[in-house]
């Protein structure tokens, strides 16, 4: 009842554009979080308000979100380019 999928069938440019939009919205979100953490770091330095705590948290949060961006890109490009 369903048309069999033809692996060679090219997907429409719309699909690719949406995929790029998906990827970039994730990257934007995650880099937004990194920028946010950076801003809090700056504010705490400026106000002399436990800069040490902010540094400690930033040291964890920033690499984690960078890694998330990395993994997401790896999956995205790895799978999109890994087809036949």
């Amino acid at each position: 009842m369903n048309p069999p999928h033809n692996p060679g069938e090219p997907e429409s440019p719309l699909v690719f554009r949406l995929q790029i939009a998906l990827l970039s919205s994730f990257v934007l979100f995650a880099s937004g979080v990194i920028i946010w953490v950076g801003r809090l770091l700056y504010v705490s330095w400026k106000l002399n308000d436990t800069f040490s705590a902010s540094v400690f948290i930033a040291l964890i949060a920033v690499p984690v979100f960078s890694l998330l961006i990395g993994v997401y890109n790896y999956v995205f490009w790895g799978i999109m380019r890994g087809g036949k």
């Binding site: 692996p7 790896y74 999956v75 995205f76 790895g78 799978i79 999109m80 890994g82 036949k84």
Partner: peptide
């Protein structure tokens, strides 16, 4: 994401 189950895709996944 254009998944076809190729070995390379499996590896990435």
């Amino acid at each position: 994401l254009g998944w076809q189950g190729t070995p390379r895709q499996e590896k990435v996944l």
